[in-house]
């Protein structure tokens, strides 16, 4: 179960060590993404691809606007 967070909460969580994950396609990530975000497109979320994430730290996902 995930928790929806606001912009201010994102900044606080990232400051405390959370990982930012943009789930949009690579082209959109390459053009512009939040500072420090990594790109794991929704369609590629598998046990293998998420191995790049640190399981000991919280994860924040985002796209354009949730839709």
């Amino acid at each position: 179960m995930s928790t929806s967070v606001t912009r201010d909460e994102v900044r606080r969580l990232v400051g405390a060590g959370a990982q930012l994950v943009e789930v949009l396609p690579p082209g959109e990530y390459d053009q512009e993404h939040l500072p420090g975000a990594v790109n794991l497109p929704l369609k590629s979320l598998t046990a293998a691809t998420v191995a790049a994430l640190d399981r000991s730290r919280p994860v924040i996902v985002y796209c354009w606007d949730g839709l």
Binding site: S2, T3, S4, V5, P58, V59, V61, Y62, C63, G66
Partner: peptide, 11 residues
């Protein structure tokens, strides 16, 4: 993964 947060309003 735990916890997972969703920044719904996003970019």
């Amino acid at each position: 993964f735990e916890p997972v947060y969703d920044y719904t309003l996003g970019k």
